[in-house]
Every structure is written in C-alpha cells, then in structure tokens.
Design a protein around this nucleic acid. Sequence first.
DNA 1: GTATTACTTAGACTATACTGTAAGTCAATA
DNA 2: TATTGACTTACAGTATAGTCTAAGTAATAC
Lengths: 117, 117
Amino acid sequence: MTIGELSKKTNISEYTLRYYEKKRLLRVSRDRIGRRCYAENDISWIFFIKRLKDTGMLLKDIEKYAELRYEGDSTMPERLAMLQEHRVYILREQRKWAEYLKNLDSKISFYQEEINK
Amino acid sequence: MTIGELSKKTNISEYTLRYYEKKRLLRVSRDRIGRRCYAENDISWIFFIKRLKDTGMLLKDIEKYAELRYEGDSTMPERLAMLQEHRVYILREQRKWAEYLKNLDSKISFYQEEINK
DNA sequence: GTATTACTTAGACTATACTGTAAGTCAATA
DNA sequence: TATTGACTTACAGTATAGTCTAAGTAATAC
C-alpha cells in the first residue's frame, strides 16, 4: 500500500504519516525504487496511535510504546504497564470533565435565573 | 493587588497574566505610576478562565466571552449561549473518554490474556 | 518523447499558549 | 545617595504537532 492509499484509508495526511515515521511512531519498508510501502495491519496501528493521541498521550510517549511494539511480543508486559498507566490518566480526565460539567451547569443556572429576573 | 500578589494567589505566572491581558482576556487598571492593580473579583474571573481553558476552550473564544463580560449585564444572554454551546462540547468529550476507556480496557484484557497464556 | 502523477528529501513555516530576556523606570530602604 | 526589588515594555525563544514548499526522481499515460 502506498502512502497515498494509506492516507485515504486513515484520513491522515501524507505529511503527517511521514512526520510520524520521522518521529519513529511508524516503521515503513520501501519498494525497489525507494517508495514507502505499508502493510495492512499498519492501518489498525495508526488508528491506535490516533486514539492514544486523542486521549492526550504525547507523541514522545507514543513513540516509546511504538518502540516496544516493534521490539516484539516480549515487551507485552511493559506495554501493558503503559496502557494501565494511561488508563489511570483517562479516569482522572473523566472525573475532571464530570466536575467541570457540574460547575458549568451551576453557572448556566445562575445566568438563566439572572436573565429571567 | 499587584501582579505579583495575583500571581501567587492564582498560581499563574506574571508572564501569563500579562499575556492574558495582551490577549484581552483581562482588563487591568493602573496605579499612579503605571503599575497594574487588580481587583479582588479578578481572582474568580481568572479561575473561570482557567476552567474554560482546561475544558478545551481556545483563548480566542475565551476572549470573546471576556469582551461580552466586560460589556456588562446586557450581554448575559449571549454569554449564556456560549456556555450552553460549550456544555455540548463537554458532553461530547465525556462520551469520547467513556468510549476510549472501553476500548483501552479491551486492549488491556487482551494483553493480560496473552501474557498469562 | 514529453507530460502527468506519485513519490522522494530537507527544511521552512504555522498555530497555540506560553516563557523568558533585555533594557529601563520607580519608590522604598540601608 | 546608592542599591534593591518589583515593576514596565517590546520582542525573542520554546514546545507540540503538524503543514507545506522546493527541488528532484521514477513510472506510467498519451
């Protein structure tokens, strides 16, 4: 699969795919004339990267995860530990959002009362 | 209150306070020799800005809110509308985090099974 | 055989949100 | 009076995460 095809399938720009490669999130083999060729399972890997990123993991931490992943199955315990740590982060985020929603709702109520006075 | 005092009370650096002022989030009066002097209620305003920022509102949107706020009570309906819109955003974020937690949990389960095989 | 398209690289540019520096002012204190 | 410390300004620098450009190559399409 070429970079253009992968870009369409994942909805991630070619620029970004190359950028991720430079940042070592992605390891890509080349064809005979030096063009990137991606494997099918790179798609799910990229979606996984996307999820980690969207849930606030920094690229440099994703890079660490990627390095372990490319090292093979022996690094599973380490990867598991990283995910468990990230899980704690997500739980904290959830609590944060719940609290802010409560806050915002009381602000909204206040405004509504003020306006209807 | 001087900028140094406000900085300590809000735990926001003087740099940032000046930056917020330049970005029109904050309007500050000056003393006789040109130094910033803040009012007591600037503290709660800053904490509110902090909350909006922490919940993903961009400074340029917070600036819009600030402008309305400094315009006076007549802009309450507009501010309310902004907060209600932001509420929808927060609800969407909450759903996102819940979904990602579910995803992550199944990934974690998978790893745990693999490791214990 | 040339035009088009898809690719390559390095490196410059962008946006957001700060963060820090340099040079100078002012008022209170030793 | 001289120094200290908190303040002022404009502007440069940083980090993160892209986003784009310029110059060039290779394979295919007409």
